[in-house]
Simulated scan of single mutants.
Amino acid sequence: MKLLLVFALALATTSADLLSRNVVHQRDLTFTPLIDGRITNGKDAVEGQFPYQVGASFSSSKGSWWCGGSIIDNEWVVTAAHCTSGATSVTLYFGGVVRTSPELKVTVSSSNFIQHSSYNSITIRNDISLIKIPSLSFNKNINKVNLPKKASSYSTYAGDVAIASGWGLISDSATAVHSKLQYTPLEVITNAECSAVFGKLLVYSSTICVATPAGTSTCQGDSGGPLVYGNDLIGITSYGSSAGCESGSPAAFTRVTSYLDWISANAGI
């Protein structure tokens, strides 16, 4: 949300073609991405259901914002680059379903962030960051999610149903992040379907999108959080439509299989 105005202005100068389209047919709709995420019309999670889920309260001299993240190792959390961008520190919440009652809280400075060096806030490309944390002791409520195997890099996951989770707002009319962890199953769609809505300048091979039927989606507050298929982290919540999280437009994630080498090079995983 904090980057929406900046992005809209930048996009106006970057892509006159996108902005000149008439909003008439669904396939021609072009929305300014809303950089944040939440679970709308989701379900309450129970203790231990998503032990890899992390809550993240980022701070800067200009304010603070809430995001999500995923434990991928006992010393590493992965999140979105637009979450770490501009932050001076983050307090991470582990092992809780109620947002304000985690099993463990850890605060680290931005010196522990590894933000992708080619992250572009205008095109939302390479929207991924790592956060180094003190070593965690895993238990039933705090544990890692698997990264996909290298062989999975050839899979688009289109047609598969994955699970998104987070504490974000639960409707377009809500004004604060939710108190209880929410989750929802979402079907992965092809990038061609996604780019028909957002445009080819915003959807890459490193993007993975889901359908959001019946107003069930990710949106503000869930940015950086997980999209998990089976036991594998396949997506990191990146952006949705400024038309609203209940609008039925796709939701976009950073495709984790595109960054396995980057994660390995920077975190050794």
Rank of each mutant, 00 (worst) to 15 (best):
L3T: 11
A12I: 14
T13P: 12
S15G: 09
A16F: 14
L18P: 04
V23N: 15
V24I: 14
V24E: 12
H25Q: 13
Q26C: 14
T30G: 15
P33I: 03
I35W: 06
G37F: 01
N41I: 06
N41R: 05
D44M: 10
E47H: 11
G48N: 02
G48W: 07
Q49F: 05
F50Y: 01
V54Q: 05
G55H: 07
A56I: 08
S57A: 13
S60A: 08
K62N: 12
K62E: 12
W66M: 15
W66V: 15
G68W: 06
G69H: 00
S70A: 14
S70F: 10
S70E: 10
D73P: 00
T84Y: 09
S89E: 12
S89N: 07
L92C: 04
L92T: 00
L92Q: 05
F94W: 09
G96W: 02
V97S: 07
V97W: 01
S101M: 13
P102F: 04
K105Y: 00
T107Q: 08
V108Q: 03
V108C: 10
F113Q: 04
Q115F: 05
S117M: 11
S118T: 11
S118H: 12
Y119C: 00
R125I: 11
L130P: 00
I131N: 05
S135V: 11
S135K: 15
S135T: 15
L136D: 01
F138R: 08
N139R: 03
N141P: 01
I142E: 07
P148T: 03
S153M: 12
S153H: 12
S155T: 14
V161Y: 04
V161A: 04
G166T: 08
L169Q: 13
S171W: 08
A174P: 10
A176Y: 11
A176I: 10
V177H: 07
P185T: 00
V188P: 04
N191Y: 07
A196T: 09
F198I: 02
G199S: 07
K200F: 14
L201P: 15
L202M: 13
Y204M: 14
T207D: 09
I208M: 10
C209P: 04
C219T: 03
G221S: 01
D222W: 06
S223T: 09
L227Y: 05
V228A: 03
L233D: 06
I234D: 05
I236G: 03
T237D: 02
S238E: 09
Y239A: 08
Y239F: 15
E246F: 02
G248E: 01
S249H: 13
F253W: 08
T254E: 07
T257S: 10
Y259A: 02
L260T: 01
W262D: 00
S264Q: 01
G268D: 01
I269C: 01
I269P: 04
